[in-house]
Design a protein around this nucleic acid. Structure first.
Lengths: 203, 203
DNA sequence: GTCTTGATTGAATGATCAATCAAGTCATAT
DNA sequence: ATATGACTTGATTGATCATTCAATCAAGAC
């Protein structure tokens, strides 16, 4: 089985969906950039929607290797890992003049009536992302107030990332991203000092 | 001049762009729902893009009357006004089974290469929104730490709203919105208690 | 009364779209 | 050798898209 073609289609579609969105990317766009003919594409994928499914599965399965590992290399402090992850998005914004955002967030807002498979894959991508952040918060458990809902805080950090990228992209100004992340950092700082003020737990 | 038709086109387009997005709304969609014929639409608007411009101008000019006034009626406390505004989005989510989000955020992420006029109108909508929040923060100045960057905090509140709506829509679960807003409320609470702990300013 | 201007009608155009399919290639199994 | 089945080719289809335009209408100005 030749899955080179399938992979080339998915990688190309991934690029294009990120650049132009799902709706604005035509099958013809994918074919010409990937140097694949329409029959081959439809041999591997029943339709355009299934290409999107394949791309979302790639993202879902690649988060560890392609997102976390590069950004966390050399960063040990769990809280700093969170900001290292956010810094990855900052670098994307810089290298694209604030035009590219989060590929998942883009698609999530673009597709208004997703079929269940697509919706679940978008949700799975969000869940994997915030679970990774949650693990960082768990590792920093003793620096946070005892009643901290770490899962909710991780979702919130995803929220801030998505909103910050949205604004930086809309204004075409990195400052909007930076100020938002600074606010988040201040929030986490307040939580840490609140934790320090708590009486030590009984052993 | 008969601008009834123009208005009907814009109101219909506003609805449709919100329901299905800009790209997925065809001119034919607008024509059939608004009971207008193509020639009339093109009499008032050079093209589809200009309909979008008209819609974004309506949003920009209507924020006071259609967004702030309804949500702030009977709410005097400036901080509570912020959460009353956010509650407006919560109600939209409830009444649409978590399918509709922020119309501006949707378009901002959908349009990848906006022409300058569209990009500036999106930015203007964001700016008007966060300025309204900033005015609330200004009114609550004495309850916040003295070094608070209220403009940045207002941008951050917009960020949290957009991210929270995105997640609730993606998961089709209101809880994601609620937990995010609860986190924001906790953050503002921490700021208020930090302000209370500050020494009184010299007069 | 006729001229002018703004507004409306709706069929037509050409581009682009996702998807199809019959004919072909090629490696491997028998 | 030949048969099989995975894969490729690329022209083609029919739907849908934004847009155009000549014709028509309504109503105030001269």
């Amino acid at each position: 089985m030749n899955s080179d073609t399938r992979t080339r289609i998915l990688m190309t579609a991934m690029e294009l969906f990120w650049e132009k969105g799902f709706g604005s990317t035509s099958i013809a766009d994918i074919l010409s950039r990937s140097q694949v003919h329409s029959g081959s594409l439809y041999h591997f994928f029943p339709g355009k929607q299934d290409v999107l499914v394949g791309v979302l599965e790639l993202y879902r399965d690649g988060i560890e290797e392609w997102l976390l590992k590069p950004n966390w290399d050399g960063v040990d402090d769990p809280i700093e890992r969170i900001f290292a992850l956010l810094n990855g998005y900052r670098i994307q914004l810089i290298t694209t003049d604030c035009t590219y955002g989060c590929p998942i967030g883009n698609i999530a807002l673009e597709i208004h009536e997703p079929d269940p498979q697509v919706r679940e894959l978008l949700a799975a991508n969000f869940t994997n992302w915030s679970r990774a952040v949650e693990r960082c918060l768990d590792a920093a458990e003793d620096r946070l107030p005892r009643d901290t809902d770490r899962a909710a805080l991780a979702e919130y950090i995803l929220t801030v990332m998505e909103g910050a990228v949205m604004q930086a992209r809309t204004y075409r100004e990195l400052g909007y991203f930076d100020r938002n992340i600074a606010m988040l950092r201040e929030h986490l700082g307040l939580l840490e000092s609140k934790a320090r003020a708590e009486p030590v737990a009984a052993v």
